[in-house]
């Protein structure tokens, strides 16, 4: 057990054997762990998305995943950053579309899921998927009731040409909200609040003009599926 101070030189073969053996052992353990936990992790991620989906498309019971492809929508099999989720009520009517948005927050990127309601042309809810904002400060963007109220009906109408938003979504200083497309920042967490506005504006500006002409198809697609 005790290593003598003056050891005869270890042959290279022995060193290689030990290193190789340890590497094999660790490889085996890691692969085993990855295999064992993979279904659990996938389940967790699916669960997290589903939990967020019911919040951002209130009332929806069934969801379908889509992806925007050249000139239309295609059902998406895998989850990705560009995945769209269409939420339907029990009668199969389209209630809303959810998509991901992201922006640089205070500490790191903030990843959001937001729900868009085509009937009112407004955003109906946001959920933070991932962030590293400071607990008790920046992380209030996912808990603060007054802040979340901003997104119960956030104006995201398209301009007459249908190519861009009528009013860009912006975050304004706490207490300065005057218009339905403005987000009232949390005082003390302005940077995180702004990041949310930026993420929404950037994503909505691109997504909504693209999705609007296609909405009819998802409504119909759903009916065809039934």
């Amino acid at each position: 057990m005790n290593i003598p101070a003056l050891q005869p030189r270890t042959p290279t073969a022995a060193m290689l054997a030990v290193l190789g053996g340890v590497a094999m052992l660790s490889g085996l353990l890691v692969v085993l762990a990855a295999q064992l936990t993979a279904p659990l992790i996938a389940e967790n991620q699916r669960h997290a998305i589903e939990r967020a989906l019911v919040r951002v498309i209130p009332g929806a019971v069934t969801f379908r995943r889509y992806r925007i492809v050249e000139g239309g929508l295609a059902p998406a099999r895998k989850e990705g950053d560009d995945t769209l989720y269409a939420g339907y009520d029990a009668q199969g009517r389209l209630l809303g579309i959810a998509a991901r948005a992201a922006a640089q927050g205070y500490a790191d990127m903030i990843y959001l899921l937001y729900g868009y309601d085509p009937r009112c042309q407004c955003i109906r809810g946001i959920q933070v998927l991932k962030m590293a904002e400071t607990p008790g400060l920046g992380d209030r963007i996912m808990k603060d009731h007054a802040f979340l109220k901003n997104f119960e009906s956030l104006d995201a109408r398209l301009d007459p040409s249908g190519e861009s938003l009528l009013n860009p979504i912006v975050t304004v200083k706490h207490g300065a909200k005057r218009n339905p497309w403005e987000i009232d920042a949390i005082s003390g967490a302005t940077i995180s609040s702004r990041a949310v506005g930026k993420a929404l504006n950037r994503s909505a500006r691109k997504l909504l003009p693209a999705i609007h002409p296609l909405l009819q198809r998802i409504r119909r697609l759903r009916e065809a599926q039934r």
Binding site: A103, Q104, G105, Y106, T190, I191, S192, R194, A195, K198
Partner: peptide, 8 residues
């Protein structure tokens, strides 16, 4: 410098 990250 924090504002640098999340400014306008």
């Amino acid at each position: 410098f924090a504002g640098l990250g999340g400014g306008h």
